[in-house]
Amino acid sequence: MKTMLLATGVAAAVFAGCAAMNDDAAYRREAAEVVKRDFHARGIATMDRLNQDELQRVCTEYDDNPPADLAKKLEAQQFAAIKLPADGKFMGDWKAGAKLAESGRGMTWSDKKGAAGGSCYNCHQLAPQQTAFGTVGPSLTGFGKKRGFSTENQQYAYMRIYNSKAFAVCSAMPRFGHSGTLDEQQIKDLTAYLMDPNSPVNK
């Protein structure tokens, strides 16, 4: 009797849990419908931006913590889609990279097409003399010096900027290459800002 009561209790709890999950799924669907109804295109910010790709949908559904197998599958997809530079070189000009790292512009409805920076300092500490840095991402001060100035690490930095989601599927970091925010040369310049021994990041 006791066992049956307990079993009924567990079943009820599971049922309540499932009902809540179904509710959550229903509200997520409603959210997608409501924003598509309420928003309008402005400047470069077009309505197709509200359509979630698979990765965005999964990260929303699992509150940025999807099951490991699903996370691995999506990371592999993102990784495979990274376009490496045709000339095999990952390093640009760190001085140009410094300007891009400082710029928080780009991709809003008040920006012009293509006028984007990397917004790096919004979330990361980089050169030690720049004290106005955000903390959404980890500190990248001494990035190259700590890891070593190898070609492998240059490639890692390039890929991480191009698509951070290839390494951490629900990362807060935008996919700068994948989204077309930054072009190949700009990502090379930022890679150099992280990896050039003369960059203030490594001083």
Binding site: D23, Y27, R49, M107, P174
Partner: peptide
Amino acid sequence: ELGKAIFHYRAGPWDFS
């Protein structure tokens, strides 16, 4: 509940919610 769902809706070129 709807507000909570919109708050967590990741989309756009930078994947932000």
